[in-house]
Design a protein around this nucleic acid. Sequence first.
DNA 1: TATTGTTATACTCTATAACTATA
DNA 2: TATAGTTATAGAGTATAACAATA
Lengths: 153, 153
Amino acid sequence: MAARTDTAHATEAADAALTREVVDLIASIVSRYHEEYEAAAAQYGLTGAQARVLALLAREPLPMRRIAEQLKCEPSNVTGIVDRLEARGLVERRPDPADRRVKVAAATEAGAQTADRLRSGLTFAREPLAGLSAQERRALRDLLRRMLDMPAG
Amino acid sequence: MAARTDTAHATEAADAALTREVVDLIASIVSRYHEEYEAAAAQYGLTGAQARVLALLAREPLPMRRIAEQLKCEPSNVTGIVDRLEARGLVERRPDPADRRVKVAAATEAGAQTADRLRSGLTFAREPLAGLSAQERRALRDLLRRMLDMPAG
DNA sequence: TATTGTTATACTCTATAACTATA
DNA sequence: TATAGTTATAGAGTATAACAATA
């Protein structure tokens, strides 16, 4: 083993502490993000899963199987979630003319409106970001991209 | 309405796009974080909630009510989660000599070991961070702190 | 035969309310 | 009376397996 200086050891320890602090901060953000999302959904009488599906369908109609892929869950679960959204008039199932096995779920007018309002209500992440300068937001964007292994774009 | 330059409008639009991109990146991180956490828990036959409670108790023993506070759920839910952890020998309930109403849940030796291994397996957030220089990690830390409205510390 | 969506089943998490044993 | 924990209950999300309709 090569001998190393005390300084090298001290630097490693500081690095580890710094990394750990950033990891903890990210955990805090994850926690806050979820809390706010669930609370916003609850304001409209929706569960988190229902709100997520509604948000997906507000962007574009999707076959049941595609919803399951987006949610990373089994297709059988989607049946119940869409059932509940449909019972409240926020979503509807349409046949696919090209393949009669497929049912395409789509947000209704009311569903799209609810999705919009819900999205507008999600102030966390958007509000604190407003306090950062454009340069800081760019710096944050670039660092987050690198964390996600995304190209510099 | 005061007249404004095209440049001002263009800047606002770019700002909004930037903010939205950062928000989407954060959503991606939240999603990844959860996926990895659930997958790591599943490797040990634990649900996400069970893994979170075990992680809490590996740090320090806690009365049932304190666990509920940390999880932000009703105390009645904790009974079942701790029941399942206890049935697997990962956690045990101890009496509190100072107040005989209280039951203190604590990780067993096996539980602490599982919690350690689980924590070590959570590479997301830690691994990509290793690719950032100390200066970049400090920059990220400061930006995240500001997002969380935390003092510069 | 393979695929889409559903149903049936079982388990977990969740909140609410009622209960017990302490304080 | 108030508090800590539990039990009972009901609703929702989840995975697995089996099924009907369609490809």
